[in-house]
Simulated assay, not measured.
Amino acid sequence: MILASAPTAITWLVLVLAALCAGFAKTAVGGIGLISVVLAATVMPAAESTAAVLLLLIIADACAVARYHRHADWKLIRQVVPAVLPGLLIGSVLLAVLPDTVLRRSIGGVLLFMVALQLLPLPHTPSANRATATVAGLGAGACTMMANAAGPVMTLYLLARGLDKRRFLGTSAWFFAGVNLCKVPFAAGLGLFDAQMLLRTLILAPAVLLGALLGVTVVNRLRQQLFDRAVLAASAVSALALILL
């Protein structure tokens, strides 16, 4: 294991940064949430880091729902949800059978692929067919189970639906709150939770809350296009680092 039983100061610093990013992503732009995955995976085994980030994201989800709950588009959520569970099952199987090194590089590959998809021109149309919603649900379920990396999948889908900023954030908040809670039994079944991880999550919770508050402040002040480009660049660098580690 990369993470010792008694985490070092550097390990704690990395985990605090991951917690800040998790909170910031949920109340601002989700793409930066990939950085939480990358940071945690640099100081923990890949499978364990996925579970640790999941707990941080659940806290961040609560912050996002509290802030944006009135702006969700429930019609879009209902279109995607039926395919999420099969996606979670696929991701859970891969998480259980892949070796740590392979999983770490797979996470990097998934993130890099998602970033590349974000760069493609997207059709801004008010309608999307059932097949698109199914693909988005499967991809979100599998990617979030393996790497907590469903953000780019849903970003593509929601951007294609032409949502404004608040509807986008509200829909994402409720969707991921539900998805991440559904992932808990899968991760627990894989033996990824223990008392030490739960205690560490409680210690890191204030950092998640601080990140969420920063996100609320920034999202209304920073131009969305510029912010999206910065997040995509950071995500690409992080994904490449994971692949090369």
Rank of each mutant, 00 (worst) to 15 (best):
I243Q: 08
G31K: 01
C182A: 15
L119E: 06
A241I: 13
L209F: 13
A195C: 10
Y68P: 03
L54V: 06
V84G: 03
L199T: 14
L222S: 07
L76H: 08
L55P: 00
H124E: 12
A83V: 07
Q118L: 15
Q118Y: 08
A47Q: 06
A195P: 09
A160M: 10
A46W: 04
G178T: 03
V218G: 10
A40Q: 05
F113H: 05
V97H: 07
A147L: 09
C21A: 15
G91C: 03
R70K: 15
P82W: 11
M114Y: 12
V115Y: 02
S172W: 01
T217K: 12
V14S: 03
G33S: 05
T101N: 12
M197Y: 07
R67M: 08
F113R: 06
A177I: 00
K165N: 12
L117F: 13
L34Q: 05
N148P: 00
P82I: 11
D228R: 15
V153F: 07
L169D: 02
R70G: 15
V16D: 06
R223F: 10
K165D: 14
L112R: 08
L213F: 12
A140F: 01
I58E: 04
C63E: 09
R105D: 05
L34H: 02
D100R: 08
L214Y: 09
V16Q: 06
L199S: 13
V16P: 00
G151D: 03
L55Q: 00
M146G: 01
I32R: 01
A160L: 02
S5T: 14
R105P: 01
L222T: 11
A160G: 15
L204F: 03
C182K: 01
K26V: 06
A149M: 10
A6Y: 10
P86I: 02
K75R: 14
L34I: 12
A22R: 08
P7C: 07
L181C: 15
I90W: 03
T132A: 12
I90F: 07
S235T: 10
A149Y: 01
P185M: 08
A52L: 08
F186D: 01
L98V: 10
T155Q: 03
D61G: 03
T155D: 00
R105I: 09
S92F: 08
L199V: 14
A136D: 04
R104C: 04
V16A: 13
R223C: 12
G141M: 06
P121S: 11
R70D: 12
A116M: 14
G87D: 05
A52K: 04
V237E: 10
